[in-house]
Write a protein that binds this DNA or RNA. Structure first.
Lengths: 232, 232
DNA sequence: ATTGTCATGTCACACAATTGTCATATATTA
DNA sequence: TAATATATGACAATTGTGTGACATGACAAT
């Protein structure tokens, strides 16, 4: 099943509903993580980097809509699609939900089949924007689906971390990132590694890119690194 | 890293644990204050206004979670992030902790590294950096995001300190600053550097700006320097 | 189990850029 | 012209990065 890598975060205060959804999604080949509150959810988004969020409208404490707004404002996660779950009676509010940054909404009660269908639809809509399409710069191509990198049509042998690092850089060009930011974005928020480790992976990446393309990975002294086509 | 200045309040009834944590944090450049009870902690929060609170779940008297709730309800300190410290066996309660307003939690025992990492992560989350727009004057552009300076579309090679200096000037134009003020603003308040050093960096900055743009950095004799578009 | 291969994170050292300071030159003011 | 303030070049100490090597742990094949 090709959806199996996708991690879905389910946010709802009702454990029974969460589980129901989780079971349905897992049968469809998704991976699920759950949260009961907005705070909890936020922590999980940062730590686990889910590919999609199912968000209940009504939550104790910070409401779902507020959380959605916050996530969409946050540089770190504004590209994670959100589906709002609303009760029938709240349907009027759907406009608000979409305004807050939700990519779709489903009114409760819903069938598992409907949920999965909409979820896939949203994923289809939102992923091609960068996760699926090959990215090309100069003569360097990164193909996210095939998980391959080539320089002038020649395959490069690249490790997983270097791949993610390069992918991040190629989707965030022309911008300086600190080592900490790179750790957050590429490694994820829940790993604790030395900042200097970034240097090592930068070096490995440069090495595999070779002399023709390592100019793309630029050192910004005192700050971090930058991916840029323009020479330093 | 400029984590210094951040004040962390450690609340735990075990002095040995408090000290252990304090040592770890101080090595990471944080400033620590300690409290053994919820009561003391509350007083310190009010008096010292820490930027962050490490709060043990189990406390004699008012429990940690109760304190968290109280703080989060309080207008004065509901924006101070809280990290809960819980024993492994209490892990189930983490949801409760997050509900009470904690921003993260760590289960004991934890490594100093993990603690520091999570702490920094929470601080990063709660102090979002403002979006910085490129600044342009005449034909000179400084882009904080890309960390680049260009004169008429030509990249300039500029050192870190000169970059900060120029950034400060461009965001504070048409005003004379004394060397001391520049040291405070650009170098940071707590560094001991000769005043004359400013002159040297001014010269370096002028040099990299070149003859077309060095007129922007003007000497104000007897006072200091000024960034101004108007010719002297 | 055992071995072998990766991928990863960390360290120590090599190397390079930046920084602060000084001595000296030049400019400005009274 | 003397007195004061700023500009400039040189240099050594400091700081930040690059790089190779190593230990560890995951995993697959044996």
């Amino acid at each position: 099943m090709k959806q199996q890598g996708k991690k879905i975060l389910i946010v709802d205060d009702e454990p029974s509903i969460r589980d129901m959804i989780a079971v349905a999604l897992e049968m469809a080949g998704f991976q699920c993580i759950e949260a009961a509150t907005a705070k909890d959810a936020y922590a999980l988004v940062v730590d686990e980097k889910p590919q999609m969020i199912l968000l209940d409208w009504m939550l104790p404490g910070t409401s779902g809509i507020e959380l959605a707004r916050r996530l969409k404002r946050d540089e770190l996660c504004n590209d994670v699609p959100i589906i709002m779950l609303t009760a029938k009676s709240e349907e009027d509010n759907k406009i608000l939900g979409l305004e807050a940054g939700a990519d779709d909404y489903i009114t409760k009660p819903f069938s598992p089949r409907e949920l999965v269908a909409r979820l896939k639809a949203v994923l289809r809509r939102t992923t091609p924007q960068g996760i699926e399409e090959p990215i090309q710069v100069d003569g360097l191509t990164l193909d996210p689906i095939r998980h391959r990198v080539s320089a002038n049509d020649e395959q490069l042998d690249i490790g997983p971390t270097e791949f993610r690092l390069l992918q991040f850089f190629m989707t965030h060009q022309e911008r300086a990132y600190s080592r900490t930011q790179l750790l957050d974005q590429v490694w994820g928020g829940n790993v604790y590694v030395e900042e200097r480790t970034v240097d090592v992976h930068i070096r490995r990446l440069r090495k595999t890119l070779g002399v023709n393309f390592d100019y793309l990975i630029q050192t910004v002294r005192g700050t971090g690194y930058r991916f840029s086509q323009k020479p330093k």
